[in-house]
Computed example of a mutant assay.
Amino acid sequence: MDIAVVGLGYWGPNLLRNLYELPGCDRLVACDLDESKLNKIKSRYPVVEVTTQFQQVLDDDGIDAVIIATPVSFHYPLAKQALQAGKHVFVEKPFTSSRREGENLIALAEQAQRKIMVGHTFEYSPPVLKIKELIEKGELGELFYISSSRVNLGLHQKDVSVIWDLAPHDFSSIFYWLGEQPVRVSAMGRDFVQPGIPDVAFVNLEFASGCIANVQLSWLAPSKLRRTTIVGANKMLVYDDTENIEKVKIYDKGVDYKDPETFGEYHLSYRSGDVLSPRLDSFEPLSKEMDHFITCCQEGTVPKTDGANGLRVVKALEAAEYSMNHNGIVVNVDSLD
């Protein structure tokens, strides 16, 4: 396949590197308005073609697919043009700036009979895949709640809140694990550093299954945390993405309730057993993701993280942002349609 990568800021070069190393990618074109970024790519990958003109990418009939790694405000217009030009499209997270834009891109892709895929890379990572496997096997039992922290000192964004910047990672993983999107969302946040751009947020998610989740997000924290706790009826799990080796740990801990048979009988017993760290596969998630995109385009299969997958995250982001801007009210996700 011949593929163009549009946007060479923070993430674009990583996408390009992985595509360059995949046998399924025959020709690569890099596109960015900044010529200095193109020069860096050209010096590192001499065979990669470069251009500052997106229209040139659209007019090139040899290019089969376009990878969009620009700021989110450009996702919709660029993806729309690429689909209208008959290209398959991969869009980095978050999918679009609004659910309406996401719905329009999904419809356009169907009309053009082209694939559209969203860059929820964590859904291709060994720890997240292992956790999904454990949940489906019933290892944790009925899931009670999920608590996640994604905080660091920076990097502050100029165009989006901390919710739109950081929450897509956790939302996509949580929705993937549970196999559902939230029905209700609420959020509180503050703009402590840049007026009008919240840098700290606490998001609550409620699911139809009864599971609840809390996601803490911050650009204003003393240390980097990437930690998720999943509590089930049988066992508990901690996923720490900052760990080098044992990223996932399963705790045989819990509380057993027994109906009292006599007055005054203590009816709670606490269980504390072994702590196990399952073996994880070793591969680069981004390479797996890019290879999956190429395969879907070539074979006509539906991407794991397709437009609908990206849209459910955007809906939750919109609901969280709306709640945060309206004093933390509880928002029914579908009510914003």
Score class of each variant (00 low, 15 high):
F144P: 01
L155N: 15
I67A: 09
L108A: 07
A85T: 02
E289F: 14
P198I: 03
L317P: 08
S323F: 00
Q194M: 12
E136M: 07
N234R: 15
V275N: 06
I68C: 10
N14G: 14
K37A: 07
C297K: 08
E101Y: 15
A208I: 12
N327I: 03
Y10F: 08
E92S: 04
L205K: 10
F293P: 09
Y145M: 08
G189T: 02
R279N: 14
A65N: 01
S335K: 11
V333Q: 04
S186Q: 11
D26W: 06
K132R: 05
S73N: 13
P23A: 02
R114M: 05
F207A: 13
P222T: 06
R312T: 09
P278Y: 11
H120N: 14
I3M: 04
V162H: 11
I116F: 03
D170G: 01
A167I: 06
V151Q: 14
H88A: 05
P303W: 05
H156V: 07
Q298P: 01
D2R: 14
M1C: 02
R279A: 11
A208T: 08
Q53V: 12
G310Q: 04
A30M: 11
G328D: 12
E318H: 00
P71D: 09
A65R: 01
E265Y: 07
P77A: 07
M290V: 11
S269P: 02
F90A: 01
L205H: 03
E142D: 13
S335F: 09
F283L: 13
N214E: 09
K304Y: 06
S98W: 10
K137I: 02
I329S: 11
K253R: 05
T305R: 10
D281N: 14
D159T: 12
R279K: 13
V6R: 03
P168N: 06
L33H: 13
E133L: 04
T301V: 12
T301F: 15
R226F: 08
L178M: 01
L268C: 10
V248Y: 09
V193K: 13
M1F: 04
F283I: 12
E206K: 11
A109S: 03
V314Y: 06
F202Q: 14
D165W: 09
A4K: 03
D252Y: 08
K247R: 13
G141V: 11
H169I: 13
D170I: 06
S287N: 07
F293D: 08
V200M: 11
G232I: 06
I41Y: 07
R226I: 05
P46V: 05
P94M: 05
I163Q: 10
F95T: 10
E110F: 03
Q81E: 13
E49A: 08
K158C: 05
S173V: 02
A112T: 05
A79Y: 01
L129E: 04
V47T: 08
L58F: 02
